[in-house]
Measured scan of single mutants.
Amino acid sequence: LSQDQINEYKECFSLYDKQQRGKIKATDLMVAMRCLGASPTPGEVQRHLQTHGIDGNGELDFSTFLTIMHMQIKQE
């Protein structure tokens, strides 16, 4: 990932990090990914979360979000 991409991801991540705690809700993951041009299915989002041990009510930090985005873009 280039620095530009990382900055773009950070900007989008921040939109969903409403309390500015450095985390977004798992329920916002799909929308955040789509905001960056990825098109994950609900099943793919579920798999990404399970891979990282996050349940549907959990939260993920930016580095986890980056990893998930990277995996998603590689497979699209």
Results as ranks from 00 to 15, higher is better:
Asp4Val: 06
Leu1Asp: 12
Gln19Ala: 08
Asn7Cys: 07
Met71Ser: 02
Gly37Gln: 06
Glu8Asp: 13
Asn57Ala: 13
Ser2Val: 06
Met69Ile: 13
Glu44Arg: 02
Asp28Tyr: 07
Met69Trp: 03
Phe62Arg: 03
Ile6Leu: 12
Tyr16Ile: 05
Leu60Cys: 10
Asp17Ala: 06
Thr27Tyr: 11
Gly58Arg: 07
Asn7Pro: 06
Gln20Ser: 11
Val31Phe: 07
Asp55Gly: 15
Tyr16His: 10
Cys12Lys: 13
Ile6Ala: 04
Leu15Ser: 13
Met33Thr: 02
Gly58Val: 04
Ser39Asn: 15
Gly43Lys: 13
Gly53Val: 01
Leu49Thr: 03
Glu8Gly: 08
Met69Thr: 11
Ser14Arg: 08
Leu1Pro: 03
Thr27Asn: 13
Gly37His: 11
Phe62Asp: 01
Gly22Ile: 00
Tyr9Ala: 14
Met69Phe: 06
Thr27Gly: 13
Glu76Asp: 07
Gly43Arg: 09
Lys25Asn: 06
Glu8Trp: 07
Met33Lys: 00
Asn57Cys: 08
Leu15Trp: 05
Tyr16Glu: 01
Cys12Ile: 15
Met30Pro: 14
Glu76Gln: 15
Phe62Gln: 06
Ile6Asp: 07
Phe62Ala: 04
Ala32Tyr: 00
Asp61Ser: 11
Gly56Pro: 15
Gly58Asn: 15
Phe13Tyr: 03
Tyr16Asp: 01
Thr27His: 07
Ile24Gly: 00
Ala26Asn: 04
Val31Gln: 11
Gln19Tyr: 06
Gly56Leu: 08
Arg21Pro: 02
Ala32Glu: 00
Glu8Pro: 06
Ser2Phe: 10
Lys25Cys: 11
Phe62Ser: 04
Phe13Ala: 00
Leu49Lys: 04
Leu60Gly: 00
Phe65Ala: 03
Tyr9Val: 11
Ala38Arg: 13
Cys35Arg: 14
Glu59Ala: 06
Ala38Gln: 11
His52Arg: 10
Gln19Lys: 13
Ser39Ala: 12
Leu36His: 04
Met71Val: 15
Ile24Ala: 01
Asn7Leu: 10
Glu11Ser: 12
Lys18Ser: 10
Ala26Arg: 03
Leu66His: 02
Ile6Trp: 06
Gly56Lys: 15
Thr51Ala: 06
Tyr16Asn: 04
Lys10Gln: 12
Glu11Val: 08
Asp28Lys: 08
Lys10Asn: 09
Ala32Lys: 00
Lys25His: 14
Arg34Ile: 11
Cys12Val: 12
Leu66Arg: 08
Leu15Asn: 15
Met33Pro: 01
Arg34Phe: 07
Met30Leu: 11
Arg34Thr: 12
Leu29Ala: 05
Gln5Glu: 02
Glu44Ala: 02
Ile6Asn: 08
Ser2Cys: 07
Ser63Leu: 07
Ala32Ile: 12
Glu76Gly: 14
Cys12Gly: 13
Leu29Cys: 12
Gln5Tyr: 07
Met30Trp: 08
Lys25Trp: 09
Ser63Ala: 07
Gln19Thr: 08
Gln3Pro: 08
Met69Cys: 12
Pro42Val: 07
Pro42Thr: 01
Asp17Ile: 01
Tyr9Gln: 04
Asn57His: 15
Gln19His: 15
Gly43Tyr: 14
His70Asp: 03
Ser14Pro: 00
Phe62Asn: 00
Glu76Phe: 04
Cys12Tyr: 12
Glu59Val: 04
Asn7Ala: 12
Lys74Val: 02
Glu11Ile: 12
Phe62Gly: 01
Ile68Thr: 04
Val45Asp: 10
Phe65Tyr: 05
Ser14Gly: 05
Cys12Asp: 01
Lys10Tyr: 07
Leu60Glu: 00
Asn57Arg: 14
